[in-house]
C-alpha cells in the first residue's frame, strides 16, 4: 500500500516535470535558435530545411559585430547610462522609500503608479525639448536623466514595500539608544533593508538596460546604447543574419546571466512589486 503510494507520487512528479518541460520548451527553443543563428555562416542561415547545428561554427560573427559597428563604444555607453541611472536611483530612491513608508504616505506612491501607466513617449517629448534647450543632446546625460523615469519608480516602489515590513521597534530601540533620525536610517534601517536594495538594484538595472524607446529618440551615433545599436543594425538590410543574431545575443546576455544568478531575488521582487502594484 505504502509503496504503491510512493510509486504514484514519483509518477505524478515525473508527469509534472514533463508538463513543465513542454511549457518551457518555447523558451529553450528560442534561445537555442538564437545561439544557432549567431554561430552560422550565411549559407547555413539561408539553408532550407534550416540547420540547427552547423558543421562550421562562425565565431567570426561575433568578431564582426565589434569590428564593424563600434559595439564596444555602445557597450560602454550602455554601462554608463544604466549604471549611473541605477546608482542615482538607489541614492535618492532608497531614502525616499524609507520616508514614504515611515510617513505612512503610501498614497503618495500613487504618483509612481501613474508614472508607470504613462507612456514613455509622453515623457520624451518635453524632456527632449529641454535637453535640446540645455544643449545636452550629444552627451549621455539626456539618456541618464530620462532613465531615471524607469529606475526611480522601481526602487522607490520596492523599497516602500520593504521598509513597511521591517519592524518599527528596531528603529524605536535605536532612537532610545541615542540615535538621531539619520543614524537610525543609516545604522539600523539601511543594513536591514539590504536584501530589498539588492532586489531593486537588479530590477532597475535590467529594465534600464533593456530600454529602447528613450535611446532611439535621444541617442546619436556616438551616444547609442546597445538596444538602439542593435536596432540600427537591423535597419541596414545588407547585414547578414549571423552577425545580427550575435549582436542580439551580446545585448541581452548580461541581463540573462543576471537573471540566472539572481533568480531568487528577481522573482521575489517582481512578485512583491507586482502584487503591490495592483
Amino acid at each position: 500500500m505504502a509503496s504503491r503510494l510512493i510509486r504514484r507520487k514519483t509518477l505524478d512528479s515525473l508527469g509534472l516535470f514533463f508538463v513543465a518541460f513542454v511549457m518551457v520548451s518555447p523558451v529553450i527553443l528560442f534561445f537555442l535558435w538564437m545561439i544557432s543563428l549567431s554561430l552560422k555562416y550565411e549559407i547555413d542561415n539561408g539553408a532550407y530545411p534550416p540547420i540547427l547545428i552547423p558543421e562550421n561554427f562562425a565565431w567570426s560573427n561575433y568578431l564582426k559585430v565589434f569590428e564593424e559597428n563600434n559595439f564596444l563604444l555602445y557597450f560602454w555607453n550602455s554601462i554608463l547610462v544604466t549604471g549611473t541611472a541605477t546608482l542615482l536611483a538607489l541614492v535618492i530612491g532608497v531614502p525616499a522609500g524609507y520616508g514614504i513608508a515611515r510617513l505612512k504616505a503610501e498614497k503618495s506612491a500613487v504618483i509612481i503608479m501613474i508614472a508607470r501607466m504613462t507612456p514613455g513617449l509622453s515623457f520624451l517629448i518635453p524632456l527632449f525639448l529641454v535637453f535640446q534647450w540645455l544643449s545636452l543632446i550629444g552627451t549621455l546625460w539626456p539618456q541618464i536623466i530620462i532613465h531615471l523615469v524607469v529606475t526611480v519608480p522601481i526602487v522607490v516602489w520596492i523599497m516602500i514595500g520593504y521598509f513597511e515590513t521591517t519592524p518599527i521597534e528596531l528603529e524605536e530601540a535605536a532612537s532610545i539608544d541615542g540615535a538621531t533620525p539619520w543614524q537610525v536610517f543609516r545604522l539600523v534601517a539601511l543594513p536591514i533593508a539590504k536584501p530589498g536594495i539588492v532586489v531593486s538594484f537588479i530590477l532597475a538595472l535590467i529594465f534600464s538596460w533593456n530600454n529602447f524607446v528613450f535611446g532611439i529618440v535621444l541617442a546619436n551615433r556616438e551616444t547609442r546604447t546597445l538596444p538602439v545599436a542593435v536596432y540600427n543594425m537591423l535597419s541596414f538590410e545588407q547585414v547578414s543574419w549571423g552577425p545580427l543574431a550575435a549582436a542580439a545575443l551580446i545585448v541581452t546576455l548580461p541581463v540573462l546571466l543576471l537573471t540566472m544568478f539572481a533568480q531568487r531575488q528577481i522573482v521575489a521582487g517582481l512578485t512583491a512589486g507586482a502584487v503591490k502594484g495592483g
Binding site: D12, S13, L14, L16, F17, A20, F21, M23, V24, V27, I28, F30, F31, W33, M34, L37, I206, W209, N210, F212, L226, P227, V228, V230, Y231, L234, W241, L244, A245, A247, A248, L249, V251, T252, V255, L256, L258, T259, M260, Q263, I266, V267
Partner: peptide, 29 residues
C-alpha cells in the same frame, strides 16, 4: 513539486528579462 522545478522556473522567467529589441530581432528572422 517536481524535480528541477527551480531551474525550469528560472528558464521560464527568462523571456521577460531579455532585451525586447534583441528578442524582436530574432523573432523577425
Amino acid at each position: 513539486k517536481f524535480p528541477f522545478r527551480g531551474f525550469l522556473r528560472g528558464v521560464f522567467v527568462m523571456p521577460m528579462m531579455a532585451t525586447p529589441v534583441a528578442v524582436a530581432l530574432v523573432w523577425t528572422m
